[in-house]
Structures are given as C-alpha cells and as structure tokens.
C-alpha cells in the first residue's frame, strides 16, 4: 500500500470491520469497507453537504457562497454548450456536471495526507467510463433509431465487412483509453507522493509533486468531461 495512514480505514478497523490490506477484499463486507469505497462515500458526502452549507438561502442578489456555485455551474454549462450545443448541454448537464465535480474532488482529495483518491482504483474509473459508453449508444439510438447503425458502417457499401469490425474495435478502445488515462494519471500521482513522503517527507520533497498534482487533477477531470461531451455529440450528430 502506498498510503500507510488512511484515517477512515483506521476508524473502521478499530470498530472491528474487516478492512482489506490489498486493493480489494474477499467478502462483500470487506469489499464495502475497502478504501476506495469509503473515500468515494466521503467525496459524495462532501459534494452533498458542502453546497448545502455554503448556499444557504437562495436569493436574487447572491451572497458569497451562492456566487461561487453560480460561477462553477455557469462555467460548466457554458463549456458544454460550446461543445455540444444548447439543447444537448441542457439534456446531459446533470450527468456530466456530476462526473466533472466528482472526479475533480476525488482527484484533489488524494493530495491531503490521510486521504486517498478513489479514482486511483481502476474499478472506479471503469465504472464511470462504462456509464459514459452505454449512455453514448443509448443517446445514438434515441436520436437516430435503427439508423444509428449507419455510424458503424462507413460511407461505402461494399466495404461494410471491413468497416464494421474496425468501428466496433475503435469504440471499445474508447472504454480502455478513457478509463486507463484517468486511473493511470491519478495512480501515478498517488504512488509518487507516497514514495516521496516516505523517503524525504521532512525535507518537503513532495512539494513540487503536490503542485503538479493539483494541475493533473484539474486537467484529468476536464479531459474526462471533454471527451465524454465529444462522444455524446458524435453519437447525436448524423453519420457522414
């Protein structure tokens, strides 16, 4: 384990829960209290409670907290509207904004000692990616009906036996590249930080990597958001 001290795991362990020592446990309970699950719940709680506390009462003239959240939500919606049009942005906004905020907070939380990024586990990123993948194809079928299959057939009829496997393979490659990019970046950040803390933590050796970690967290959250937007808009537009 690259994280020697995870305070939720320590608390659960002192309560007698079978916290696994590897990444994933054996029994259902051990799976439920494994670190990436508990820290996912922590991030969820954070995202539910902190806006509740900071928003207060919504008013026409926004206070400090409301102003901040209006900038965040407005910025996200503008970013989506730039890339997939107004209607598409309004339709997909709840899901994509959830992904963006969740991944951003989940990446950043690993920079604090005692916490870990849930996204440094492949299962979490793969789950996010599979949701995006299936939503892409559901959107395609919703917008084009059975004609969605034209997206997979290419422009020339006699090339269909060649194009169909090619298109299917490149769609499956999307799952892998989207999930492994996020997982790999965050895992690398976490491992590097852990090793540097262990080797020379007293001499502020992890400090430059912490700064880089903030950058990587923001960039990876943005890239995940942007690529899912691009996949959605590609599924919604007509085949060419």
């Amino acid at each position: 384990m690259e994280h020697p001290i995870l305070f939720i795991s320590l608390i659960l362990q002192s309560l007698g829960m079978p916290v696994p020592h590897g990444p994933v446990g054996d029994t259902l309970l051990a799976k439920l209290v494994s670190p990436h699950m508990t820290y996912t719940w922590l991030v969820m709680l954070f995202l539910i409670i902190v806006p509740k506390l900071t928003l207060g009462k919504m008013s026409l003239v926004p206070g400090k907290g409301q102003n901040f959240w209006e900038v965040v939500i407005g910025g996200l919606e503008g970013f989506m509207a730039d890339n997939m049009g107004k209607e598409g942005a309004r339709m997909m906004f709840p899901m994509l904004a959830t992904f963006a905020l969740y991944i951003l907070v989940a990446n950043m939380i690993g920079l604090m000692p005692g916490f870990m990024s849930p996204t440094s586990n492949l299962n979490i990123t793969l789950a996010c990616t599979l949701i995006v993948f299936f939503t892409t194809h559901i959107l395609g079928i919703k917008f084009h009906g059975i004609g969605y299959i034209k997206h997979f057939l290419g422009p020339i009829p006699w090339l269909i036996p060649l194009m169909l496997p090619i298109e299917l393979i490149s769609h499956f490659a999307r799952i892998l590249s989207l999930s492994i990019r996020l997982f790999g970046n965050i895992m690398a950040k976490e491992t590097l930080l852990g090793i540097l803390f262990m080797l020379a933590g007293a001499y502020f050796a992890p400090l430059p990597i912490l700064c880089l970690g903030v950058f990587v967290s923001i960039v990876q959250a943005l890239v995940f958001l942007l690529l899912s937007i691009l996949y959605f808009s590609a599924a919604m537009e007509h085949a060419h």
Partner: peptide
C-alpha cells in the same frame, strides 16, 4: 484545449485498438 484533449487520445487509441483486436 479541446484539440489537445482530442489529440492526446491518439497514442492510446492506437495501442488499445491493436490489443483489443
């Protein structure tokens, strides 16, 4: 930014396409 995100997928999609095949 948009183009960077798109073109950063090129390398990985080449590798993963071959492996999935």
């Amino acid at each position: 930014l948009r183009l960077l995100a798109q073109f950063s997928t090129v390398g990985m999609s080449v590798a993963f396409s071959i492996f999935i095949g």
